[in-house]
């Protein structure tokens, strides 16, 4: 599904964002990507979304390789990977329905199918009563649900979420996490970046990757054999 092989990313001014990171996220898996601010979480998601190319190593996403894909074909990967942000990035001045319909329209969905599908997606994320509400009339949690519905519009294989609960209160966070679990239960892989270890602890069956200063220091799947349990995430997750 998603495979990073010895991936390094170096920016000319900022230096190394990732160093020799390798992991494999399998089909239908639910995983957290954790680490301090600046540890490389967002860079990892950007590389998977192919918004950037690794300086070294290879990123493979649903059969597409970062080494071989051309600028012209990037849209093919983007339609297989849904992306959700902390700040939602919805189009202001449009309704919830229009935000989702916009994505369907610009990705070649037949005109007749756009409205029914947008309505279905918003119902799926629990926003059926608010499809006609403008973005600024929605709460943070509701806006994030619209963003998730938008990310699901192309029926992606994997959903990437970059601190999706970072701007939400406890109740809205629980709702969004339930939604992610539902989506995952239907077979879609979810990779969620978060620095909230308490949130991770509440989902003990999820896989956890931890980054520290650009290096992968913990992978819950291989932790028993390969990694020392001395990273912040490993210690806190293992403290119960």
């Amino acid at each position: 599904m998603i495979k990073l092989t010895h991936v390094t990313k170096e920016y000319p001014k900022r230096g190394f964002a990732l160093r020799d990171v390798s992991f494999h996220l399998k089909k239908g898996e639910f995983a957290f990507l954790t680490g301090h601010s600046g540890s490389g979480k967002s860079t990892t998601l950007r590389l998977i979304h192919m918004a950037d190319k690794p300086t070294d190593g290879e990123v493979r996403v649903t059969g597409y390789s970062s080494e071989r894909i051309t600028e012209r074909d990037l849209w093919k990967v983007r339609r297989r990977v849904g992306y959700v942000f902390q700040d939602f990035r919805l189009l202001p001045g449009r309704t919830a329905l229009e935000n989702v319909a916009f994505v369907l329209e610009v990705t070649d969905t037949p005109q007749k199918a756009i409205r029914p599908k947008a309505q279905r997606l918003l119902s799926q994320v629990g926003l059926a009563p608010k499809i006609g509400a403008y973005v600024n009339e929605l709460s943070g949690g509701e806006q994030q649900r619209v963003a998730i519905a938008r990310a699901l519009a192309n029926d992606p294989y994997v959903l990437l979420a970059d601190e999706p609960t970072g701007n939400l209160d406890e109740r809205a966070t629980r709702g969004i996490m339930e939604l992610f679990r539902d989506i995952n239960a239907k077979g879609m892989a979810v990779l969620m970046a978060t620095h909230d270890l308490e949130l991770i602890k509440r989902h003990p069956t999820a896989r956890v990757f931890e980054l520290d200063n650009g290096s992968l220091v913990y992978d819950s799947e291989t932790a028993e054999t390969d990694a020392p349990r001395s990273t912040p995430a490993a210690e806190r997750l293992g403290s119960d």
């Binding site: 849209w75 339609r79 189009l91 990705t107 938008r150 519009a153």
Partner: peptide
Amino acid sequence: RDEIYVMRLVGAKKSFI
């Protein structure tokens, strides 16, 4: 720019944009 950003994000073809 917001619309263009979303279009690129969700996989709209460049020619379409």
